[in-house]
Amino acid sequence: MKLAYYPGCTLHGTAREYDASTKAVSKTAGIELTEIEDWNCCGALEAIFDKELSMGLSARNNMLAQKTGLDLVIPCSICSHNLSRADKAMKTDEVFRGKIEKALGNKYKNNGFKIKHLLDVMVNDVGIDSLSQKFKKSLKGIKAVPYYGCLLVRPSEVSKFDNPENPQSLDNLIKATGAECLPFTQKTKCCGGNLLMSKQDYAFILTKKLFDEAKAAGANCMVVACPMCHMLLDGQQSMVEKAHNTVINMPVLYFTQLIGLAMGLGDKELELDKNMVSPKQLLESIGKETKEEKKVEKPETKAGAEPEKEVAK
């Protein structure tokens, strides 16, 4: 499979481990990525409401991708939303298309050109079955909650590949690696990312709520598919801990890092040392489930005798 690749600004900066693991995993999955030449910022969440500007900036990238003759894959949920929304407008809104074609001196192709999120490509185009064939190692011991966040699945008129209320693609992918996928009612709740600059204390309350539930579910890690979610959950985790005077210490992996581990790819290749919250302990827990469970479970049943009571009733 050959695809054009739009990394977006964060994957060349704070989310470099997402870029590295995307490339490594794609290679193993048999996807050849061609990074589009001279791409620009899509305007991210900062220009998203300057709608024409955001769509204009995004449309330039789409036109560059169209030059390759390939469909376009995007790992960032925000970029993916912006470029897809622009694609739709360029195909349906003549006045807008006229403006942008004039600015760029180029015609927008209205053919079968598709823009997809990387998760969609992995789960639906490569497919979980063929991905599983590349898995060399079971990730038993990892107890993950899948976190989809907002723009990966919403609005469904732009992102169509999964159920907006109860998406399953990450769940299924996690299960395929042999890791445990725990039920997570907060899977599409907002992490507060876009409040970071406007109201940081609210952003941190929203982030903390996610971790509280992840912990209550018994998770030892969170799996994400967006650099913005990751920036909050991983990058700002220490700040959330400080603001709430608590310890969270939960590694947050990109789904590409997770499947990379199952593929037997190296820590360096997946840049697991670049995550702000170290996944070292988590990596050590892989394959050691039985020992750990023996250690942990006894005191837990003593402390929280609830389940036993329920049985007695």
Binding site: R60, A103, K274
Partner: peptide, 29 residues
């Protein structure tokens, strides 16, 4: 910490097509 991990660059990255970007701004404004 971000810099140490190679996640933050001190200088901006400029693309080649900045003139096109300027024209997009002009056109939508």
């Amino acid at each position: 910490e971000l810099f140490r991990k190679g996640k933050l660059s001190i200088l901006p990255h400029k693309i080649k097509g900045t003139d096109q970007i300027k024209r997009i701004f002009e056109e939508v404004e």
